[in-house]
Design a protein around this nucleic acid. Sequence first.
DNA 1: GCGGATGGGTGAAGCGATTCATTCGCCCGG
DNA 2: CCGGGCGAATGAATCGCTTCACCCATCCGC
Lengths: 336, 336
Amino acid sequence: MVGIKDVARQAGVSVGTVSNVINRPDLVAEETRTRVQSVIARLGYVRSESARQLRAGASRIMALLVLDMGNPFFVAVASGAERTARAAGLGVMVCNSAQSVSEELEYLSLFAEQRVRGVLVTPADPTGRSLDGLRSQGIPFVLVDRVSADPDVCSVSVDDVAGGRLAAQHLIAAGHRSIVYVGGPPEVPQVRDRKAGALAALAEAGLPADSLTEISAERLDVSAGRDAGSRLLGLGKRPTAVFCANDLLALGVLQAMFAARISVPDEMAIVGYDDIEFAAAAAVPLTSVRQPAVSMGRLAAEMLLEETVGDPADHRHRQTVLQPELVVRGSSLPGR
Amino acid sequence: MVGIKDVARQAGVSVGTVSNVINRPDLVAEETRTRVQSVIARLGYVRSESARQLRAGASRIMALLVLDMGNPFFVAVASGAERTARAAGLGVMVCNSAQSVSEELEYLSLFAEQRVRGVLVTPADPTGRSLDGLRSQGIPFVLVDRVSADPDVCSVSVDDVAGGRLAAQHLIAAGHRSIVYVGGPPEVPQVRDRKAGALAALAEAGLPADSLTEISAERLDVSAGRDAGSRLLGLGKRPTAVFCANDLLALGVLQAMFAARISVPDEMAIVGYDDIEFAAAAAVPLTSVRQPAVSMGRLAAEMLLEETVGDPADHRHRQTVLQPELVVRGSSLPGR
DNA sequence: GCGGATGGGTGAAGCGATTCATTCGCCCGG
DNA sequence: CCGGGCGAATGAATCGCTTCACCCATCCGC
């Protein structure tokens, strides 16, 4: 493997000069510069990032750790973060904790060993304890789609309570009085907040709290949604509407309704959450609460860059909260 | 930042011993080992991956470069590759060329600088020239979902001609005599092969080649599919069936049919390709040609590991070709 | 009692870059 | 004619780790 010394020798200059040609070309005389550059090209020299890192003490990589790469919502977050980071000259390492705390810890320690510039993370560990490692290593991080109780932790999130309220208000306005909430693992804050929003909407409409029944799915994916859908059909008094904690669940529920030949939205209205691209392409186009996923990725990356590139002293920790938006489609509009 | 020297000093041993405690604990006496380990824990020492890499000459990272992270097919490939690589102690860096040759080149040179152990790549550059860089750097790579003309290039792919044939045979058997193929950029081999398979099926059934009309989509995603769908409706003689180069296109076409109130499958049968999870959850569950995406990722990663971990001399380059499978669903089954 | 294992540990070399104090010409003004 | 200033290039130190040749007791067998 050809190194900087080989280039220096071939070009008849010192290694320092070669380094300057690469990193501060203006310090080198024109003639020397072109000579060195042509040797670099001829030898196919590629500088070693690990050597630079070792010297610099920090890598040029930003890490992104998400809960589920199978969920297009996170894919969108990733694409927003990636674009921003690359514009700033950083690479992005996207990893998937698959909602497992142990995988999360494994990845976080991998990041620490890599000395990544910073981490964007949607924590799987509800206690937030898993991030202590980053904190003690002094690695900056920004929470994505989650807020910390600690105001000194940066985050970009969406107001899930407001989102849940939007969804429930919509169903209530359509006349539904018996709604099922398909949630997920109860320790996931999003799941709780979206439900809280729905409950708030019911209360505001003067409806009893027991108008909302919860079915808790194992995971937040399509197949768990299918299961939840069939459980829903087994309920004593069948509800007329379902609000799902995310679109994957909603798509699963929709499939279950199809299988049971229950008409959506006439016999069962469905509202999802996230407004992933596939929501609009579903069996019945899905009403959903849209989250600005790409912007979240972008904002989170910008926040991290601000903390990591500029003087850390003039960085103020912030907790940005974005507003969701209801997108009404066929799955909740009776009488097409 | 605490380094190995700090640990050594605190523990009263040499740096070599600390290194041994970490990497070859059996060489160190029990008593010393536990003492060092407790110092490591107390100081929160994290070894620097860049320093190890520099010394070792190669990183512990495998790169995966895909065409479109918005396509669940590639997400599945990534998950298969990731699991395999991590089991072997390698991290995976997943990147998205978004079908752009320039992004692809940028990423490939990033990989070279990082001295990644190897690269799994679905090339965006149809000429294959973009991989010359890897070759000249001696970085092993495996093509995913593409075969090279050069038998010395490892690859894992699926027989797209067979897949196209399956799809067309199915439509022919259902009585369709006028089929549209919704392809994509013509330089994409998959797009061409799947069409070739369909044409072969027509020929084998004794049908004229002009029973197949091609509509070429701009990109291989849902919105391009919508466009293709409306163009399809503008054709002079409306066909009775559509075969799409992938499921995203098919979902887009499906949306267009919905918008135009054309019944699927009665007025228009649709067959997709990839069998992504969302295909089954679509407006009308989508008939599709299933590709073993997770296995592809796994096999490709295994192949790369074999080349990279074992003695390179006893590695035989291979071109694995898997067989696709037709999954029939409502979108091509008339008379429900 | 002495040569040779053997287990446990040391410490310096080196990986490939960056950086900075230093050197080397050269020109210019006094 | 000489000192200063300046642009250009040098080369050694350094980053944090792994590895390897070597050292030091201790113990064993003859």
